[in-house]
Amino acid sequence: MKLKLALPVAAILAVSAGSAIAADSSDPIIIPVHNWSSQIVMSHVVGQIFQSIGDNVEYVTTDSQAVYESIRLGDVSLELEVWEGAFGASYTAALEKGGIHEAGNHNAVTREDWWYPLWTKEACPGLPDWEALNACAAKFATPETGDKGRFLGGPVDWLKHDQERVDALGMNFVVVNAGSAAALWAEIGAAEKDKKPIVLFNWTPNFAEAVWPGEFVEFPKWVDGCNEDPKVGPKPDVTYDCGNPANGYLKIAAWDGMEKKWPDAYKVLTKISFTNPQIAQMAKLVDVDDMEPEEAAATWLEENQDVWKGWVN
């Protein structure tokens, strides 16, 4: 029964799909999504742009580190948010192996580092300087960390080097890893009520800065090689004796085969560039306004036609 009814439909679909876009393959473009909102919404924004030019799109949830290996193999087609601080290493490693290349660069700077909401400054006025933070470490103590301060890190699979930095700089802090981004926001929310001092991992662009104004802790400036060469950085004998890059890149990566397989989509991809406020807006639609990612993407596209229409034509 269903065969009889569905066959003509399928046939018509196949024909129309084939004729509408002459160049791009009808195979779906596979867009990876990860576990933070801006990336999810941006993936859907771009996905919907691709769909508007007649491509098929599929979203797969992948690990944000392992994704570069998948792109190299062509299992997924592109990555819309390559954060220098977080994924620079994995990305560079994949670039060296080949199969992946840079397809664009957002007009945005990224930064991921120790961060505090503004009320923390009342308890520790010397902030944002890291030595001042270290001096009032006891103010950040919790039952589980004893008299040392607690730094709440991101999930371990984000592969941050907070512990190494604490060791390198001899800080009076204990690194406690939250299991998910949600846990981070829950902690800020809990601390907000009685304005408890808190220092935790955060990043920009991110919706959080709109909800809870705050600042990054200023560590010794990032210098290339600080994470590998002990001689680099203020302390001559240790690595990680510096902060993360303060203005990291946010790039777009693509599989080498993409240009050939979906030339039209690829052309659009190379033109794409979002700014910090645009990215924060995308995250906010989901994190604050409680939209579903697809819905948020549609809303964003609707409200920002002047931004993206130009890329398509």
């Binding site: 690990d63 944000s64 580190q65 392992a66 290996e69 999930p155 371990v156 699979d157 984000w158 592969l159 406690v176 890893n177 939250a178 299991g179 998910s180 846990a183």
Partner: peptide
Amino acid sequence: IAAFIGTQDLGQELQRTLAGN
């Protein structure tokens, strides 16, 4: 699973291995 809250146990290490190979 509670590694997603944040733990210092085997679960945390397991979660870490998921990021790599």
